[in-house]
């Protein structure tokens, strides 16, 4: 103890319960960072996808031409994500109903809108996948850390009870080791909470632009039905 406390000595010397807590927290931290990275990739690509697709959509290109390009991309085994999926679902349904020759414009509109709604909820589901896990880690891991701390302090005071001389040197390592559990808990929680809040904001942004696009697209389809 004279040569200064090493964190690793502390962890190795800790009681089994504290070690278990530390292990759980470390795992939570790693998994939450995996999700943070993965969500960052997905959400940023979704944001970029919204921008690029809106640009293409409003560039005055023929809608069937746009649909064909998407089909080509799909044939090259590439995924089509986000707004383009909604467009494709709505457009496909619209064309199909129109070819079946049901004269009722409202029914066609309704079918296209339904298809778009389904595609939208699928996309939303993809985007918010795993986000609840981040929220859970953010709110729970401080408690797990506190649990480890309480156990550790309890142990160190139990050890103190058997000592004749109650010096600070006797309790200090135990308490330090116990507080290390709280530190790790916070270390896991803080990035998770920050990422959750940030990603929720991005998610809201993206989904609201999806909804706006859906409305705009259905108004375009509506115009097409009533113009012919």
């Amino acid at each position: 103890m004279n040569e200064g406390l090493n964190i690793f000595d502390l962890v190795l010397g800790a009681s089994l319960a504290v070690q278990l807590v530390l292990l759980i927290l470390l795992l939570l931290s790693v998994v939450s960072w995996v999700i943070i990275a993965q969500r960052w990739l997905v959400l940023s690509s979704a944001k970029k996808g919204v921008l690029s697709f809106e640009q293409r959509f409003w560039s005055g290109m023929d809608l069937s031409q746009l649909y064909k390009e998407g089909s080509q991309v799909q044939q090259e085994n590439m995924q089509i994500v986000g707004m383009e999926n909604i467009f494709r679902a709505g457009f496909k349904e619209f064309m199909r109903l129109r070819q079946q020759g049901t004269g009722d414009g409202e029914a066609i509109m309704e079918g296209a809108q339904r298809a778009m709604r389904v595609a939208y909820s699928r996309e939303e589901e993809k985007l918010e996948k795993h986000l609840p896990f981040l929220a859970t880690v953010g709110s729970v891991s401080p408690y797990i850390g506190l649990f480890g701390t309480v156990i550790g302090i309890m142990n160190s005071f139990l050890g103190l009870a058997t000592q004749a001389q109650a010096t600070l040197q006797v309790v200090a390592p135990g308490i330090s080791e116990a507080l290390f559990a709280t530190a790790i808990g916070l270390f896991a929680a803080i990035p998770a909470v920050v990422a959750y809040n940030r990603y929720s904001a991005v998610l809201d942004d993206v989904t609201s632009s999806y909804i706006t696009f859906t409305d705009e697209f259905s108004s375009i389809l509506h115009r097409q039905i009533h113009s012919t």
Partner: peptide, 21 residues
Amino acid sequence: MNSVFNNLIIYNGYPISIVAA
């Protein structure tokens, strides 16, 4: 959407995320 980025998230970006974490 460029193809490199699309390839990155081809499995929803899990492998690279795990490595990064």
